[in-house]
């Protein structure tokens, strides 16, 4: 197994991302096996800091979200909201001593938007530089309420 496949990555992606059907998702799961977990979301704006934090707490070394190009969100501001929430989450995890780049956002370029597979490749490449998360070695507490 390669070093790249040892990483566990939580990847949220907007359903408007090009070539992001269930078939493509399964192809990526075959390629990366259990090293990535893909979660389609109706809009990038659906993501909340808690999604990232719970992913980091439970299983992920890093958590990323893929959103539409700026100005092209189907719900007008979803991608902008996601950007702010990623920033907010980074501040939270940095305050407890984790590296901020464990949380990330990838905005699909407006010119020549990339397919989900290409975006995932890029994210996996970035995330592979990270050390294994210290949080995952801590004792896991039972699931807590959302608030």
């Amino acid at each position: 197994m390669t070093e790249e496949k040892k990483q566990t990555l939580a990847l949220f992606y907007c359903q408007q991302t090009p070539e992001s059907s269930e078939q493509e998702r399964q192809c990526l799961e075959e390629k990366y096996e259990r090293s990535i977990r893909l979660f389609p979301i109706p809009c990038g704006g659906r993501i909340e800091p808690l999604h990232f934090l719970r992913a980091l707490e439970e299983f992920a070394n890093a958590a990323y979200v893929i959103v539409c190009p700026e100005g092209e969100c189907r719900y007008f501001e979803g991608n902008l909201r996601a950007k702010k929430r990623v920033q907010k989450t980074r501040e939270i995890i940095e305050s407890i001593g984790l590296e901020g780049n464990r949380i990330g956002i990838l905005i699909n370029p407006r010119e020549n938007p990339k397919s989900l597979a290409r975006l995932v490749d890029e994210i996996v490449c970035n995330a592979s530089q990270l050390e294994p998360s210290r949080v995952l070695n801590l004792h896991h507490s039972p699931a807590r309420p959302f608030h």
Binding site: F39, H51, A55, A143, R144
Partner: peptide
């Protein structure tokens, strides 16, 4: 009464 199922998000 919100909560999040982390296995499936």
């Amino acid at each position: 009464n919100r909560d999040l199922d982390v296995r499936q998000m």
